[in-house]
Design a binder for these strands. Structure first.
Lengths: 259, 259
DNA sequence: CGCTCATTTGACAGAAATCAAAAGCGGTGG
DNA sequence: CCACCGCTTTTGATTTCTGTCAAATGAGCG
């Protein structure tokens, strides 16, 4: 790596971004990428920080580089519904809107590659190939959101829990576990607390906890600590989702868990 | 109307379309509109017809001109979940995908303005202003889908029913009812059958029916015929939704009931 | 009229929310 | 190091809701 080039701040930054080949930036031409490098900057947020509040000016957009962002919708009763989770490489923020209809909150410590919304809109107007990528990305997210909505409205709680865990198990940031056995098992890391997961799945922490314990009793999961489970029997987990594996994988592949 | 011009088939057709000022076509320049007139044609589908089946080649896109289209997702168990409803002026089909992840089915007799998917993709590439409109439209739909998903996952059945009815009551095609009283009441027209509404709301026809009858007993609704109710007490209906009125109205404003 | 299909109503069982309390975990300060 | 506190998670008991099964009613139609 050429440190001099990096210090100039206008070249190469994006090429070294760990997610640039998966985010919408992948569509950017070399020149566009240089311009992006100038316009964008990474920002860190501590767990729990509200990055954009519901109703606020939606003046930041960008990509999640690391960590998990919660998308939430506050209802009148003061109850916060989790509308989606954003993982690394997911696009973040709401282009072309004055205010945000949702809150964006750091569910873990988060690194974002951010730029001003209006700067982004100008950039996109100059680079149709990126606008096109954003369109494709948004269409995929819409499909995923609809599929998730279908999931939640017609399935039992256990099916939703199993689906959620399966999707989490497919994410790349899971370490393997060599517990002396021949086959390495995936470690499922729950990125957020039980309360939030329950809200996301449309249930209560109590019911979620019971379902998780049922999975442990069935030897499908093995608890490591509160937020980590070893996935012992993936195929039985898929059984419990009541969906076809391909459908689940397509949900993962394009929608990356966003609802 | 100039019939001669209409018969030429290449001019003016779209200008007379009842939804062209609300659909994404509104962004099209005069030339683009002419090209659209050439490329598109209206098609009628009887109630119940499957227009595009899940997994099929998604080779038709367009706009709903009249009627209601059901977006459905068949789960492994054979159960069909309703993922969204498309009303006049809503965009229809899935651009940039080989196959459709959902089925599109005529919920009522339907008129579509359709064109081939690839023709549409080519058209859009030549007319960036339309691509941009499609992007804006898709972003709005995504917000609406997420909001609907949040709705369905955290509310009781009655809250979902009340929300659905409230949104319907906001639709412009509702006539007023002067029943001798001073205040005219809105007539809520259920565009589709109970079975479909129930699937959309993630419940069963039986439970839906019970909830509707409860609303009638509470004097919030008054039945006119099977598919029409007079909304007697709108504010109590809003109470039952548990949402803020503004939120509901924004949902109507942009999302038009799509999930 | 008799047919079919959609909707409503009833009875019941099962699932999940609620209420309540115990256990686990991570801090802080003595 | 330990005790204390606040928090999250788990477990238990109970009630409420909703899905299921079944039957009655009503609407549209030849």
């Amino acid at each position: 790596m050429n440190e001099t080039v990096m210090k100039l701040g206008s070249c190469g930054k994006c090429e070294q971004c760990p997610v640039h080949h998966r985010s919408i930036c992948r569509a950017a031409s070399a020149e566009a990428m240089q311009e992006l490098s100038r316009l964008s900057h990474t920002r860190n947020f501590e767990k729990g920080t509200v990055i954009v509040a519901q109703g606020d000016e939606a003046d930041i957009v960008g990509n999640v580089v690391s960590g998990v962002v919660k998308l939430t919708n506050m209802s009148m009763s003061g109850q916060q519904n989790i509308v989606g989770l954003l993982f690394p490489s997911d696009f973040f923020g709401r282009a072309y809107a004055e205010t945000s209809r949702f809150s964006y909150e750091a569910a873990t410590d988060v690194t974002l590659c951010s730029l001003g919304r209006q700067a982004f809109e100008g950039f996109i107007a100059r680079h149709p190939e990126v606008e096109h990528a954003l369109l494709l990305n948004t269409l995929d997210e819409l499909d995923a959101a609809r599929e998730w909505a279908a999931m939640t409205s017609c399935h039992t709680t256990m099916q939703r829990v199993a689906t959620f865990l399966f999707i989490l198990s497919q994410r790349s940031d899971n370490r393997f576990c060599h517990s002396g056995d021949k086959i390495p098992h995936v470690i499922i890391a729950l990125p957020i607390g039980r309360r939030d997961i329950a809200a996301y799945l449309g249930t209560t922490p109590e019911t979620l906890s019971r379902n998780l314990q049922t999975l442990v009793r069935k030897q499908i999961l093995r608890p490591i600590d509160t937020n980590h489970f070893e996935l012992v029997n993936a195929s039985e987990l898929v059984e419990l989702t009541g969906e076809m594996r391909e459908d689940l994988e397509s949900m993962y592949g394009t929608g990356k868990l966003k609802a």
